[in-house]
Protein backbone atom coordinates (compact mmCIF):
# COMPACT_ATOMS: atom_id res chain seq x y z
CA UNK A 1 0.00 0.00 0.00
CA UNK A 2 1.14 3.50 -0.82
CA UNK A 3 2.69 5.32 2.19
CA UNK A 4 0.06 8.08 1.97
CA UNK A 5 -2.66 5.48 2.46
CA UNK A 6 -0.81 3.93 5.40
CA UNK A 7 -0.64 7.37 6.91
CA UNK A 8 -4.33 8.11 6.29
CA UNK A 9 -5.28 4.76 7.74
CA UNK A 10 -3.37 5.53 10.89
CA UNK A 11 -5.17 8.87 11.19
CA UNK A 12 -8.47 7.06 10.71
CA UNK A 13 -7.67 4.44 13.33
CA UNK A 14 -6.27 6.78 15.95
CA UNK A 15 -9.45 7.93 17.79
CA UNK A 16 -10.05 5.84 20.90
CA UNK A 17 -13.56 5.27 22.25
CA UNK A 18 -14.16 7.06 25.57
CA UNK A 19 -14.17 5.10 28.80
CA UNK A 20 -17.88 4.50 29.11
CA UNK A 21 -18.21 3.23 25.57
CA UNK A 22 -18.51 -0.52 26.24
CA UNK A 23 -21.08 0.11 28.93
CA UNK A 24 -23.01 2.22 26.46
CA UNK A 25 -22.84 -0.54 23.86
CA UNK A 26 -24.30 -3.04 26.30
CA UNK A 27 -27.01 -0.61 27.30
CA UNK A 28 -27.89 -0.09 23.63
CA UNK A 29 -28.16 -3.87 23.14
CA UNK A 30 -30.62 -4.06 26.03
CA UNK A 31 -32.58 -1.12 24.68
CA UNK A 32 -32.77 -2.72 21.23
CA UNK A 33 -33.96 -6.02 22.71
CA UNK A 34 -36.73 -4.19 24.55
CA UNK A 35 -38.00 -2.29 21.53
CA UNK A 36 -37.93 -5.43 19.38
CA UNK A 37 -39.99 -7.35 21.91
CA UNK A 38 -42.47 -4.51 22.08
CA UNK A 39 -42.72 -4.33 18.32
CA UNK A 40 -43.11 -8.07 17.83
CA UNK A 41 -45.76 -8.28 20.54
CA UNK A 42 -47.64 -5.38 19.03
CA UNK A 43 -47.42 -6.98 15.62
CA UNK A 44 -48.67 -10.36 16.85
CA UNK A 45 -51.74 -8.92 18.49
CA UNK A 46 -52.35 -6.85 15.39
CA UNK A 47 -52.34 -9.60 12.82
CA UNK A 48 -55.08 -11.39 14.69
CA UNK A 49 -57.09 -8.28 15.48
CA UNK A 50 -57.06 -6.39 12.24
CA UNK A 51 -55.59 -7.74 9.08
CA UNK A 52 -54.56 -4.87 6.86
CA UNK A 53 -57.04 -2.35 8.06
CA UNK A 54 -55.94 1.23 8.48
CA UNK A 55 -58.27 2.07 11.27
CA UNK A 56 -58.38 2.57 14.98
CA UNK A 57 -59.91 0.18 17.42
CA UNK A 58 -60.99 1.76 20.62
CA UNK A 59 -61.71 -0.42 23.61
CA UNK A 60 -63.40 1.47 26.34
CA UNK A 61 -64.62 -0.56 29.27
CA UNK A 62 -66.74 -2.53 26.88
CA UNK A 63 -65.63 -6.14 27.02
CA UNK A 64 -66.02 -8.27 30.14
CA UNK A 65 -62.34 -9.29 29.99
CA UNK A 66 -61.37 -5.67 29.86
CA UNK A 67 -63.47 -4.85 32.91
CA UNK A 68 -61.87 -7.78 34.67
CA UNK A 69 -58.40 -6.63 33.77
CA UNK A 70 -59.21 -3.17 35.05
CA UNK A 71 -60.38 -4.45 38.38
CA UNK A 72 -56.94 -5.99 38.81
CA UNK A 73 -55.35 -2.55 38.87
CA UNK A 74 -53.93 -1.72 42.27
CA UNK A 75 -56.40 0.23 44.32
CA UNK A 76 -55.72 3.32 46.34
CA UNK A 77 -57.31 2.95 49.70
CA UNK A 78 -60.66 1.43 49.03
CA UNK A 79 -61.59 3.78 46.21
CA UNK A 80 -59.40 6.07 44.19
CA UNK A 81 -57.32 4.48 41.51
CA UNK A 82 -55.62 4.89 38.20
CA UNK A 83 -57.17 2.67 35.59
CA UNK A 84 -56.83 2.12 31.88
CA UNK A 85 -59.33 4.38 30.22
CA UNK A 86 -58.45 3.51 26.64
CA UNK A 87 -56.43 0.75 25.10
CA UNK A 88 -55.86 0.15 21.43
CA UNK A 89 -53.38 -0.93 18.84
CA UNK A 90 -53.47 0.22 15.27
CA UNK A 91 -51.47 -0.29 12.15
CA UNK A 92 -51.34 2.37 9.55
CA UNK A 93 -49.04 2.81 6.55
CA UNK A 94 -45.59 2.52 8.06
CA UNK A 95 -46.75 2.99 11.63
CA UNK A 96 -47.51 0.74 14.57
CA UNK A 97 -49.41 2.26 17.46
CA UNK A 98 -49.71 0.66 20.85
CA UNK A 99 -51.59 2.82 23.30
CA UNK A 100 -52.70 2.37 26.88
CA UNK A 101 -54.05 5.54 28.43
CA UNK A 102 -54.62 6.03 32.13
CA UNK A 103 -57.46 7.81 33.83
CA UNK A 104 -58.42 8.60 37.39
CA UNK A 105 -61.59 7.41 39.06
CA UNK A 106 -63.21 7.17 42.45
CA UNK A 107 -61.13 9.97 43.91
CA UNK A 108 -64.29 11.54 45.26
CA UNK A 109 -63.41 14.64 43.31
CA UNK A 110 -64.98 14.75 39.88
CA UNK A 111 -63.44 18.07 38.91
CA UNK A 112 -59.99 16.62 39.56
CA UNK A 113 -60.72 13.51 37.53
CA UNK A 114 -62.08 15.50 34.63
CA UNK A 115 -59.16 17.87 34.59
CA UNK A 116 -56.46 15.22 34.77
CA UNK A 117 -58.16 12.85 32.35
CA UNK A 118 -58.76 15.55 29.77
CA UNK A 119 -55.19 16.76 30.10
CA UNK A 120 -53.71 13.31 29.55
CA UNK A 121 -55.89 12.60 26.55
CA UNK A 122 -55.10 15.93 24.92
CA UNK A 123 -51.36 15.69 25.46
CA UNK A 124 -50.99 12.13 24.29
CA UNK A 125 -53.32 12.58 21.34
CA UNK A 126 -51.34 15.60 20.13
CA UNK A 127 -48.15 13.53 20.17
CA UNK A 128 -49.81 10.62 18.42
CA UNK A 129 -51.23 12.88 15.71
CA UNK A 130 -47.85 14.41 15.10
CA UNK A 131 -46.13 11.03 15.00
CA UNK A 132 -48.74 9.67 12.66
CA UNK A 133 -48.34 12.55 10.26
CA UNK A 134 -44.57 12.18 10.27
CA UNK A 135 -44.82 8.44 9.70
CA UNK A 136 -47.17 9.06 6.78
CA UNK A 137 -44.73 11.49 5.19
CA UNK A 138 -41.83 9.08 5.59
CA UNK A 139 -43.86 6.23 4.21
CA UNK A 140 -44.95 8.28 1.17
CA UNK A 141 -41.37 9.37 0.57
CA UNK A 142 -40.21 5.78 0.86
CA UNK A 143 -42.68 4.59 -1.74
CA UNK A 144 -42.07 7.57 -3.98
CA UNK A 145 -38.36 6.74 -4.10
CA UNK A 146 -39.12 3.18 -5.16
CA UNK A 147 -38.87 1.42 -1.79
CA UNK A 148 -40.36 -2.03 -1.39
CA UNK A 149 -43.26 -1.87 1.13
CA UNK A 150 -42.37 -5.35 2.41
CA UNK A 151 -38.93 -4.18 3.53
CA UNK A 152 -40.15 -1.10 5.34
CA UNK A 153 -39.52 -1.00 9.07
CA UNK A 154 -42.53 0.79 10.51
CA UNK A 155 -42.26 3.55 13.08
CA UNK A 156 -43.39 2.25 16.45
CA UNK A 157 -45.20 4.53 18.89
CA UNK A 158 -46.00 3.23 22.33
CA UNK A 159 -47.95 5.13 24.95
CA UNK A 160 -48.41 3.74 28.41
CA UNK A 161 -48.27 4.56 32.07
CA UNK A 162 -46.92 3.37 35.36
CA UNK A 163 -48.36 3.99 38.81
CA UNK A 164 -45.49 5.08 41.01
CA UNK A 165 -47.08 5.76 44.34
CA UNK A 166 -50.45 5.61 46.00
CA UNK A 167 -51.28 6.16 49.60
CA UNK A 168 -51.36 8.81 52.29
CA UNK A 169 -53.54 11.03 50.21
CA UNK A 170 -51.28 11.14 47.17
CA UNK A 171 -51.47 9.44 43.86
CA UNK A 172 -48.47 9.57 41.51
CA UNK A 173 -48.13 8.10 38.02
CA UNK A 174 -46.08 8.72 34.90
CA UNK A 175 -47.41 8.65 31.35
CA UNK A 176 -44.76 7.83 28.73
CA UNK A 177 -44.82 8.09 24.97
CA UNK A 178 -41.99 6.30 23.16
CA UNK A 179 -41.23 6.77 19.49
CA UNK A 180 -38.80 4.53 17.70
CA UNK A 181 -37.56 5.81 14.39
CA UNK A 182 -34.13 6.93 13.23
CA UNK A 183 -33.63 7.48 16.93
CA UNK A 184 -35.63 6.24 19.87
CA UNK A 185 -37.05 9.01 21.96
CA UNK A 186 -39.17 8.99 25.03
CA UNK A 187 -41.42 11.69 26.40
CA UNK A 188 -43.06 11.56 29.78
CA UNK A 189 -45.70 13.39 31.75
CA UNK A 190 -45.70 12.71 35.44
CA UNK A 191 -48.79 13.44 37.54
CA UNK A 192 -48.89 13.65 41.29
CA UNK A 193 -52.19 14.72 42.76
CA UNK A 194 -53.16 15.57 46.30
CA UNK A 195 -56.42 13.71 46.80
CA UNK A 196 -57.51 15.96 49.64
CA UNK A 197 -57.27 19.21 47.72
CA UNK A 198 -57.51 17.92 44.17
CA UNK A 199 -54.45 19.96 43.25
CA UNK A 200 -51.25 18.92 41.56
CA UNK A 201 -48.53 18.44 44.13
CA UNK A 202 -45.43 20.61 43.65
CA UNK A 203 -41.90 20.10 44.88
CA UNK A 204 -42.41 23.18 47.01
CA UNK A 205 -45.33 21.47 48.78
CA UNK A 206 -43.10 18.53 49.63
CA UNK A 207 -39.75 20.16 50.34
CA UNK A 208 -40.65 23.63 51.56
CA UNK A 209 -39.43 27.08 50.53
CA UNK A 210 -35.86 25.96 49.94
CA UNK A 211 -36.95 23.21 47.55
CA UNK A 212 -34.65 24.29 44.75
CA UNK A 213 -31.55 24.37 46.91
CA UNK A 214 -32.46 21.02 48.46
CA UNK A 215 -32.96 19.35 45.09
CA UNK A 216 -29.91 20.97 43.47
CA UNK A 217 -27.59 19.90 46.28
CA UNK A 218 -28.89 16.35 46.19
CA UNK A 219 -28.77 16.05 42.40
CA UNK A 220 -25.20 17.41 42.27
CA UNK A 221 -24.11 14.96 44.92
CA UNK A 222 -25.73 12.05 43.09
CA UNK A 223 -24.23 13.09 39.75
CA UNK A 224 -20.78 13.15 41.38
CA UNK A 225 -21.46 9.72 42.82
CA UNK A 226 -22.68 8.21 39.57
CA UNK A 227 -19.83 9.77 37.60
CA UNK A 228 -17.42 7.51 39.48
CA UNK A 229 -18.64 4.69 37.29
CA UNK A 230 -16.87 5.17 33.95
CA UNK A 231 -19.97 3.88 32.12
CA UNK A 232 -21.79 7.05 33.15
CA UNK A 233 -21.19 10.48 31.78
CA UNK A 234 -22.86 13.84 32.33
CA UNK A 235 -22.43 17.13 30.51
CA UNK A 236 -19.83 19.09 32.42
CA UNK A 237 -19.29 22.19 30.30
CA UNK A 238 -16.68 20.59 28.07
CA UNK A 239 -17.37 20.98 24.38
CA UNK A 240 -19.48 24.02 25.22
CA UNK A 241 -22.34 21.92 26.56
CA UNK A 242 -23.38 23.20 29.93
CA UNK A 243 -23.88 20.60 32.62
CA UNK A 244 -26.43 20.53 35.42
CA UNK A 245 -26.68 23.81 37.33
CA UNK A 246 -30.20 24.01 38.67
CA UNK A 247 -33.58 22.41 38.21
CA UNK A 248 -36.27 24.27 36.31
CA UNK A 249 -39.44 25.61 37.89
CA UNK A 250 -41.58 22.91 36.39
CA UNK A 251 -39.03 20.11 36.60
CA UNK A 252 -41.02 16.89 36.25
CA UNK A 253 -41.10 14.51 39.20
CA UNK A 254 -43.14 11.69 40.65
CA UNK A 255 -43.38 10.10 44.08
CA UNK A 256 -41.30 7.00 44.53
CA UNK A 257 -42.42 3.92 46.46
CA UNK A 258 -41.13 5.43 49.69
CA UNK A 259 -43.05 8.63 49.09
CA UNK A 260 -39.87 10.56 48.28
CA UNK A 261 -40.01 12.78 45.21
CA UNK A 262 -38.02 11.51 42.22
CA UNK A 263 -37.03 14.29 39.80
CA UNK A 264 -36.70 13.43 36.11
CA UNK A 265 -34.49 14.84 33.39
CA UNK A 266 -35.20 14.30 29.73
CA UNK A 267 -32.78 12.59 27.37
CA UNK A 268 -30.00 15.05 26.53
CA UNK A 269 -31.03 17.46 29.28
CA UNK A 270 -28.04 16.84 31.52
CA UNK A 271 -26.26 13.91 29.85
CA UNK A 272 -25.52 12.41 26.44
CA UNK A 273 -28.37 10.55 24.77
CA UNK A 274 -27.11 7.09 25.64
CA UNK A 275 -27.68 7.84 29.33
CA UNK A 276 -31.41 8.02 28.67
CA UNK A 277 -33.86 9.61 31.09
CA UNK A 278 -32.13 10.48 34.33
CA UNK A 279 -33.91 10.17 37.68
CA UNK A 280 -32.85 11.27 41.13
CA UNK A 281 -34.64 10.43 44.35
CA UNK A 282 -34.64 13.32 46.81
CA UNK A 283 -34.91 12.23 50.45
CA UNK A 284 -37.64 14.13 52.28
CA UNK A 285 -35.55 14.40 55.43
CA UNK A 286 -37.13 13.97 58.82
Amino acid sequence: MHPDWEHAKQAYRSPQPPEGFSGGVEEAIRRGDRTRRRRLTARRSLTTALAACACFVLLVNASPTFAQAVSGVPVLGPLARVFTVAEYTAEDDGLLLDVRLPGLENTGNEALEERVNAEITTRVQALLDEAQQRAQEEWDAYLATGGNPADYAPAVITAGYEVKYQGEGYLSFVVTVTQVRATASEQFFPYTVDLATGEDVTLRDLLGEDWKETVNASVKEQIAQRSQDPANSYWDGSGGIQGFTSIRDGQPFYLGVDGNPVVMFEEYEIAPGYMGIQEFEIPLGE
Binding site: F21, A28, G32, D151
Partner: peptide
Amino acid sequence: SYVKNQDAAMDVVQEAIVKALEKVDT
Protein backbone atom coordinates in the same frame (compact mmCIF):
# COMPACT_ATOMS: atom_id res chain seq x y z
CA SER B 1 -14.70 9.73 11.12
CA TYR B 2 -18.01 11.32 10.09
CA VAL B 3 -19.12 13.21 13.17
CA LYS B 4 -15.73 14.18 14.66
CA ASN B 5 -17.02 14.25 18.20
CA GLN B 6 -16.91 11.66 20.98
CA ASP B 7 -20.45 11.97 22.26
CA ALA B 8 -21.94 12.17 18.79
CA ALA B 9 -19.94 9.12 17.66
CA MET B 10 -21.17 7.22 20.69
CA ASP B 11 -24.76 8.22 19.96
CA VAL B 12 -24.44 7.10 16.34
CA VAL B 13 -23.07 3.67 17.30
CA GLN B 14 -25.64 3.19 20.02
CA GLU B 15 -28.59 4.21 17.88
CA ALA B 16 -27.36 1.83 15.19
CA ILE B 17 -27.15 -0.98 17.74
CA VAL B 18 -30.65 -0.29 19.06
CA LYS B 19 -32.02 -0.28 15.54
CA ALA B 20 -30.19 -3.46 14.55
CA LEU B 21 -31.37 -5.35 17.64
CA GLU B 22 -34.86 -4.07 17.09
CA LYS B 23 -34.98 -5.29 13.51
CA VAL B 24 -32.80 -8.41 13.74
CA ASP B 25 -35.83 -10.55 12.88
CA THR B 26 -35.81 -8.97 9.41
